[in-house]
């Protein structure tokens, strides 16, 4: 039940949103898109590991 994962993902989301705004204001839209994709990939790494452990524990408990 480690809540800091939620804060990590929220932090990445907020940072990406802010950088996106900055880059679009500065006129560099492609970099903004790249930053968004990079943030998404980072979050997906955290997420897939957590979802994997969840599915393993459910498979163990319900012996599916």
């Amino acid at each position: 039940m480690n809540v800091d994962l939620i804060f990590q993902i929220a932090g990445v989301g907020i940072v990406v949103a802010v950088i996106n705004q900055l880059l679009t204001r500065a006129g560099r839209d492609e970099q903004a898109l790249l930053i968004t994709i990079a943030g998404l990939v980072a979050v997906l790494f955290i997420l897939t590991e957590q979802i994997g452990t969840l599915f393993e524990s459910i498979k163990r408990i319900f012996n599916l």
């Binding site: 480690n2 809540v3 994962l5 993902i9 929220a10 989301g13 949103a17 968004t36 955290i46």
Partner: peptide, 27 residues
């Protein structure tokens, strides 16, 4: 908070939150 600017991160946060809660209840 994140939904307006970056809706995909909002879904990610919802997913990680429900996964954490489900994990603790599954025990």
């Amino acid at each position: 908070t994140v939904r307006k600017q970056r809706p995909e991160f909002a879904v990610m946060i919802a997913l990680i939150t429900s996964a954490l809660i489900l994990g603790s209840v599954a025990e």
